[in-house]
Amino acid sequence: MEKFTTHTGRAVPLRRSNVDTDQIIPAHWLKKVTRSGFEDGLFEAWRKDESFILNQPERRGASVLVAGPEFGTGSSREHAVWALQNYGFQAVISSRFADIFRGNSLKNGLLTVVLPQQTVERLWALTEADPNAEITVDLEAREVRAEGVTASFELDENARWRLLNGLDDISITLRNADDIAAFETTRPTFKPRTQPVS
């Protein structure tokens, strides 16, 4: 997992609330056997409409999604986070995220930032008026900055520490690799191994 310290990028204002995970990535994409390549499935139904904001040329390369409240509700699929990341989003801002989605996002290195709806509205106004307007999400300072906007946000210390250091669940466990190796030396010899026996 990549470290997340601070990120500055252009934004996609998504004026919709209750965006559920089936809208983020429809169920038929779940048949895929990889963890990457979900970018084309992101908001698939909406992208069939040419006027959808993600289809506008000036939004290409944007990396901060500013969404309405209750983002990520519905089924617990982790694919929703992968789709956003595969597309190129580094951070999502909303006034409220569904719990499981939030947990999945932070575990996978996608920073989800909770800001008051008023601030979200100001970010929408700014980035709708100027597609080149940039938003900075500063995890070290726990602050979102844009032209005329400076807003601090909360994030629990453990999640922040993991993101700042780029630690996923596995790397956290592997910090205790010595304990694992020590345990392995104590395993009885009668425990089975899977190599074929002749």
Binding site: K107, D169, T173, L174, I180, E184
Partner: peptide, 13 residues
């Protein structure tokens, strides 16, 4: 994701 965790570490929290 736990399958991946076990493959990588042979452990699970």
């Amino acid at each position: 994701s736990q399958v991946e965790h076990v493959l990588a570490t042979q452990t699970l929290p």
